[in-house]
Write a protein that binds this DNA or RNA. Structure first.
Lengths: 358, 358
DNA sequence: TTGAAAGCGGTACCAC
DNA sequence: GTGGTACCGCTTTCAA
């Protein structure tokens, strides 16, 4: 099952076999197919140790993610780093960061592509803007894996995310359980035009329906990921619905909503479910103002993304078109354990992540 | 930073350096320390690829786990398998199964130790019985990692488990949230004398206390992992407390309790939280009879155990004395996603559920 | 006790 | 187009 066995079986040299296996130029197509067929039938598996030992060739993967929100993206980076260590030093991961989702990701992508990276892990802030670049990469044989958010209708290799429908459904089921008496709840999102956001709403409503609609959605608020808008519209919703029992903020933009509820003295009568985990949210969970937050497991997403990408680069194995992590509920009682597992300064502001190799 | 650099720097041969680094016999203690010091100062990192390429030596890890309950232990095995693939073919994992927790594990352990395995992953059903064997293994330099349940006061390398206090606390917090009106709840366990079980109770009570004791523990039931006893005592508890609002079964022995509640027509007035995920439980969750089950994440436990063991075998890196996974709540809405990620026959009826400790 | 040298399974280069 | 071969870093054997 080695390259030599193939060579011997065919009466050719190992050099020829190597050329055939790697589609290198300067080989008779005829002998090439003979070699490939024989490799197949002998069940040839390349010995990665030997390959890397000689060639010293290093696969380089570029990870382009925002700096904000640090805790979340650092966790994602950590998951990638951890998953990559077993493959070191044959695999090198290069982290490049830009300020915010959608701010500078295209430039970073172009830079890395030009520098000859072998693959990407990115979070497309603006999928449309990134699409042509993903296409270019794909044409050059450079695979792109999307994390957290997908870039649909592109040639990305796969995407890793928390299934948005399930995310919404988990939040809905939890609220339903917390509010057995029924009543009205509010749903906050970013843009309903965004597929992911709409899916969360569908999942959420499905869960309420399961319970026989004792819980009703009093209002669906699009806050466009804007703090001021979130705050303003939260105040409006709360005032319009003095009997509101619960709120689910399905984006990371939960702080303005929490503050609005606090200002109106409504925290104690509201069951609030938020999204993800970040330093400013920790306190709200600890003191019970946030009943639970739906966590999209950045560490696991990072691990899955790296493994899918690496497998493809080494084996050519194509992953399924979408990979999902199961969203989970973080509450006061398991919060501390989550924080422990997160990158060091979970509650302190993180500095410049910069470019780091692994 | 290679073996040659050390040799050159000291004017000795690579063979000598190798003998020194691996504490092989037949080397002058004097030169040995010189080599080691130089290796240190040059920051020598062995090239694992080259090592494995030449020596063809394969690390062999033995995984001894019960067959029952299949879904749980198969998931654990799956986590180990997945985590091991990146290290293939330098690492070989050998799975040995015995019928039930504590039934035949000692024999399997002895057999594997005699066969010259390099490390163990085991779930000690009866830690006391296993203790001397772990000691023997440790003396021979064969590390043992415990999963799911610990073997305290032994020389095991580390243990991986869901932190029992947090497991109990999560269940308690969830029940508290589900029963905002307060009332009485029942707590089922195996043996309170078992450290893990007592810890779960502590965590559970702590969560109720957080809520100002509106929820009270009406009864703590030790069912000794016995189905008939669980059923009998559940009936008794339910009849003694006609107004019981919730139940937490902190072991895997939840079916008899569920059946008892059903027989008494109490399912609709009870909020029930169980432990782990197994085929017979799936239906109860789907139809909402079980509000949630606290899942101890066998896949993650397997991954952590393997990584800790491998690191130790390769690097000598000692893991922390205990490794914890965060317990998570599985509800109807995320159930399907969990089942997807599990080994094949997730819902096929298992044979005898058997006796399992948690 | 130590040194020299032969590979492990590939890759890459040079000569034909 | 193809064959031959040196060599990647380490382990192991054999000779000194």
């Amino acid at each position: 099952m080695g390259i030599k066995d193939i060579a011997r079986a065919l009466g050719v040299s190992t050099g020829t076999v190597d050329r055939a296996l790697h589609a290198k130029p300067g080989i008779n197509p005829m002998t090439r197919t003979r070699v490939l067929r024989m490799a197949e039938s002998l069940g040839y598996r390349p010995n990665l140790a030997a390959r890397h030992l000689k060639s010293r060739k290093v696969l380089r993967i570029t990870v382009n993610l925002p700096r904000e929100i640090a805790l979340f993206w650092d966790s994602l980076r950590e998951g990638i780093r951890e998953a990559a260590t077993p493959f070191a030093p044959a695999l090198e991961v290069e982290f490049a960061s830009y300020p915010r989702l959608g701010e500078g990701d295209v430039a970073a992508f172009e830079r890395a592509l030009a520098s000859g990276t072998n693959g990407f892990i990115v979070a497309p802030g603006d999928p449309v803007a990134l699409r042509p670049h993903i296409r270019t990469a794909a044409q050059r044989g450079v695979p792109v894996v999307c994390v957290v958010t997908d870039a649909p209708d592109t040639q990305r290799l796969t995407s890793v995310s928390a299934d948005p429908y399930t995310v919404g459904a988990v939040a809905g089921e939890f609220l339903t359980r917390c509010l057995p008496g029924g009543g009205e709840v509010g749903f906050f999102t970013g843009w309903l035009a965004t597929q992911d956001h709409a899916d969360k709403l569908r999942g959420f409503e499905q869960s309420l329906a399961h319970d026989g609609h004792k819980l009703r959605v009093a209002g669906v608020v699009e806050a466009h990921d804007d703090e001021r808008e979130g705050h303003r519209r939260a105040l409006a919703l709360l005032e319009a619905h003095p009997d509101l029992k619960g709120i689910y903020v399905s984006t990371v933009n939960s702080l303005p909503v929490l503050r609005a509820a606090e200002e109106l003295g409504r925290l104690s009568t509201l069951t609030i479910v938020t999204t993800d985990l970040f330093p400013d949210l920790v306190g709200w969970i600890r003191r019970g103002a946030v009943a639970a937050t739906v966590y999209q497991r950045p560490i696991s997403q990072g691990r899955l993304a790296l493994q899918a990408l690496y497998q493809f680069l080494v084996d050519g194995t194509c992953p399924p078109p979408k990979l999902h992590v199961v969203p989970i509920l973080v509450m006061r009682s398991n919060l501390e354990l989550f924080l422990e597992r997160l990158p060091a300064d979970a509650e302190a502001p993180a500095g410049e992540p910069g470019v780091v190799r692994t």
